[in-house]
């Protein structure tokens, strides 16, 4: 029966009887596959973009310094690493003082996304591949205006004196916590000890950032999660940037809806093709019944034909 079905399928194909149905099937399979593929790529891209708001694939935060074990594990797994420390402190320039959210960052920060800086207030900004050079601070626009400083002016943070290097216009991982409402000030991590601000009992957040290929990150996160101590946490999109997570969820729902729509349209195309095929073959079925084909034989014959056709259509795109 399979052989006869294959023969009948080839005869139908040769006579052009399958053109509409095959086209419908190929479009359906191709459409669904490409929408699913596209949706998956967009989902990956959105997730990657979303990680920019963390500045990393994994962002770990602690209220104390991270032990070397975590740094070593990141290195052992071949992942990129960066660190930052954030706290609130007074900054002074001449007679002006201002409470600032200080972020001290290591070279390589951020691992996902880019910092954007401008040479002065109201000047065009650009991506920066580096962190502030030693002895330099980058201030956000609010702070520049409040302290009435310009590029090259001096500013004091703790016991250290810095030179204003640029206006910080964008930090990809700027969150929405209370501290993040304060004007921003960024220095290099190596410059932090000179400020004398890191004292026992200081309220400092220690961030460890890791990035790399998906599987390595997944495994590292799993490893790290099992070893978190008191005051240590792994920030994800859900808890660090819930508004981004919500947007991402909405985008994914939309993509899912698009894929479903493609499935429905494909089903309609296949149904129309099948209807045309069936109508054109109805007399043929009747003739075959007259010349001795049983119902079960005809059912098997056309079921095999459709299965073979479906198989071919799945392979073709």
């Amino acid at each position: 029966m399979l052989r006869l079905a294959l023969r009948m399928l080839l005869r139908d194909a040769r006579a052009g009887e399958l053109r509409v149905l095959a086209l419908g099937l190929v479009l359906a399979v191709g459409g669904v596959a490409s929408v699913a593929f596209f949706a998956d790529r967009v989902r990956q891209a959105l997730t990657r973009e979303a990680h920019q708001v963390l500045g990393a694939d994994v962002l770990m935060t602690a209220d104390h310094a991270w032990t070397p074990a975590f740094r070593d594990e990141i290195a052992r797994r071949g992942l990129s690493r960066a660190e930052s420390m954030t706290f609130v402190s007074m900054a002074r320039a001449g007679n002006e003082t201002l409470l600032a959210a200080v972020k001290a960052v290591s070279p390589g920060y951020p691992l996902r996304g880019k910092l954007r800086i401008a040479p002065g207030l109201n000047l065009p900004d650009a991506d920066s591949d580096a962190v502030p050079p030693p002895g330099t601070v980058w201030l956000d626009e609010r702070m520049m205006a409040a302290l009435k400083v310009r590029r090259g002016d001096a500013i004091e943070v703790g016991r250290a004196r810095f030179r204003v290097g640029a206006v910080l216009t964008l930090e990809p991982d700027r969150g929405v916590s209370f501290m993040n409402f304060a004007p921003r000030l960024m220095i290099r991590l190596e410059d932090l000890p000179a400020t004398g601000l890191v004292q026992p009992g200081s309220r400092i957040n220690y961030q460890l950032l890791a990035a790399g290929e998906r599987e390595g990150i997944r495994q590292f996160e799993q490893w790290a999660r099992a070893r978190l101590a008191r005051g240590e946490r792994i920030d994800s999109l859900e808890n660090a940037r819930p508004e981004v997570r919500a947007g991402l969820d909405r985008a994914q729902s939309f993509l899912g809806l698009t894929a479903m729509l493609a499935v429905v349209l494909s089903a309609v195309a296949v149904a129309l093709g099948t209807r045309r095929y069936t109508q054109r073959h109805l007399d043929g079925y009747a003739v075959m019944r007259c010349i001795g084909a049983s119902q079960s034989q005809l059912f098997a014959l056309f079921a095999w034909e459709f299965l073979l056709l479906a198989g071919t259509s799945m392979v073709m795109p």
């Binding site: 006579a15 009887e17 019944r289 010349i291 001795g292 049983s294």
Partner: peptide, 26 residues
């Protein structure tokens, strides 16, 4: 039954129709 009648038709009968009823794809 239906299959039995089909088998009997296959064994005993030949048909000629007014409108030929040839399968167009064959």
């Amino acid at each position: 039954d239906e299959d039995g009648r089909a088998a009997l038709r296959a064994r005993l009968l030949g048909f000629v129709f007014q409108s030929f009823q040839l399968l167009p794809a064959l």
